[in-house]
Design a protein around this nucleic acid. Sequence first.
RNA 1: GCGCCCGUAGCUCAGCAGGAUAGAGCACCGGAUUUCUAAUCCGGCGGUCGCAGGUUCGAAUCCUGCCGGGCGCGCCA
Length: 733
Amino acid sequence: MSIQDLLVHEFSVAVAAVAGVPVATADAQVRPAGDPKFGDYQCNVAMSLARTLKSKPRDVAQRIKDAVEPQLADIAEPLEIAGPGFINIRLKDGLLAQYLGEIPAPLSEPGAQATGSLAAGGTAQEQWHPGVAWPLTDRVGLSPVEQPQRVVVEYSQPNIAKQMHVGHLRSTIIGDVLARVLAFEGHEVVRQNHIGDWGTQMGAVILGLWYIRARVGRGASLDAVRALQERLRKLSDAPVEARREALQPICSEWSEDLQDQSLDALSGVAVTLEQLELGYVFVQTLVTVAEGTGATVTNRDRTEERLEDIPRKVTRMLQAGDVYERTEWQKARDISLAYCQGIYGPLGVLLTAEDVRGESFYSLGGNNDRRDRLQEVLQGLHEKFGATGGSPREGTGVRGEVRDHEGAVVVYLYNDKGEPLFKNPDGEELGMIVQKSDGAYLYATTDLAAIRFRLKELRFLSGGVGAQRVIYVTDARQKLHFEMFFACARAAGWITDAVRVEHVTFGSVLGGDRRPLKTREGGTVKLRELLDEAEKRALELLQQRAAAAEERRDEKDDTADRSVGEEEQREIARRVGIAAVKYADLRNDRNSDYVFDWDKMLALTGNTAPYMMYAYARIRSIYRKAAERIGSPDVYAPGVTLALGHPAERALALRLARLRETIDAVAADLTPHVLCTYLYDLAADFMRFYESCPVLAAADDASRLSRMRLCDLAARTLRLGLGLLGIEVIERM
RNA sequence: GCGCCCGUAGCUCAGCAGGAUAGAGCACCGGAUUUCUAAUCCGGCGGUCGCAGGUUCGAAUCCUGCCGGGCGCGCCA
């Protein structure tokens, strides 16, 4: 329980007594104080209560004060009534010291970079909650929730047709934080990487791979294909005749390749990510250019096939279980996923191969139990809604209908007045397509299959089955899709009131021009390149700082050697660079767009990752110095108490004591930026403390041990908080 | 046309379960270092909270309308 929870509880009891209402309905309006001079927390309820009680606000405040004060004897200084009727609460220093004093020493782990090594021999060790998903050994005294929930967090969702780019960055980073925070709170979290591996783009991927290898098999280079693609791309707006003419040689070539059985051997050849991407882009370009030209290729069975229809046909064949398509698909998927893991690792994201459960999983052959859950969705929808429309699902007031529209299978949803829930720009009812006219499935179908699976079949670590909460982390532009899909699943009775299903949205990453971030050439920014650049820029920065520090030391005749080895510097640069990128993404409210700016995110001052990492490194430095000068005292020994006489000590202590309410808020509202703000405030509070309160040179032993303990608590809190953000700290910078 | 998000200091953003004089950072100006990393700290400058109504003891916060920006609206995800 947080300190705020404690105050809320005590004040609620008092307010209930004064107002004559049940405690459960009494909102005591206890908030952190708006200004430090008003204390630490404040209760604002007296003003609004005065009206219903027909008395003066200050009198009401006095009655609440009288009722609650005895309960707060050990918690707060005498309450002050101020202004129109605010009740200002200042926590006793003793309460803060006691609250923080109860935080046990961290588990010491040999070899780990735990601050716990300080506490060797400490007895009050903590138990880590077994449901947690990553090796975090220090809970900083926070206990897990008593009633854990089974939670699914779906995030990242790369598409295997393309390598990961900035478009995947926010979902991956934000989703990872939410998974970590909820797991830390004690919930059972299952991460689901719902990769795009079964949709319309797969036809183009498979076709592209075939085409590329056929050309390479005939001696062409990838560059030649790339040049051809570039030439075609420029034709996309050209008149039909020009496009038809340009396509002519490609179509003949293609037809020839199709007849040449010797090329079939190429399907055994391994593919590269480069081929995959180029092939995909090439086919997409080809289709765009072929649109309306009537260009055809000759199939093996001598039939003519329209160019732009081929990818769709291949997708359909894949989904129908054709062996060739299936094999190629597997190759493309393997190579693309391996690449994704190559990003997740350095990026410090928890996702592993185990978390991958893509669209294909729900299709026949995508899993081990030979069930086609996409087909089951279709059947289910027909049963629930039927062709003539079912009755409104109880409680939702929403009625669904499954109808055929131009050959596609479409779900329409109506409210209790029979009005369509969704409309298109012409004001007509807007349906959700669950099966295309060519028989292929779409994302709506896989999403429906996935939610059914997660709520009914997904098995959790504890043995429990079915999620109680499902969180989708995707960009805000998909909002309408999620509204439709949720409404449909509710109307079908698949999502019940017993479960919580949320779409966690976020804004776009913009470039300096306020347009979606692109490379200078106008292409998408690859995540791989982004991370490399982050490390490179961080390294340059570190080298500059090191040189500047060297100069200063020469001036001061400081002979201390603070230089780090090249390898350590690289590792520091790597962590700082990645941290900067992640923190910049997380620090603002999710829903707003943010401008990607290297200089700002790598700045050493202000609300940035480097600033907080520096604060951590400074604390660790104190401990290194302590080891040199006075050995390593056990700051968690029973005799050590926290003294908070200096304002900076007290401010730091108060901040530390607010960790619980902060993490609770982040978990409740799914708002990582609230944690960022907290950590920045904590780092700033520590910096002020550092400036005004000598630690190792403190006046006496008791004060030194107290301050060393505060330092360690600050370090542990920073390490935990940054860890929840997926950011690794460093021992020195 | 309809729907969603956004509009707060020169810039980037917090604050929005209604609460006291609207807060940070950057930039700018001034100051602090015999001491644990100056990658720091302290002070100053800077705001009709897009506009207009309404609800309220009290509105950046809630409601309505308008203005400006972004996004979305059937066989892509």
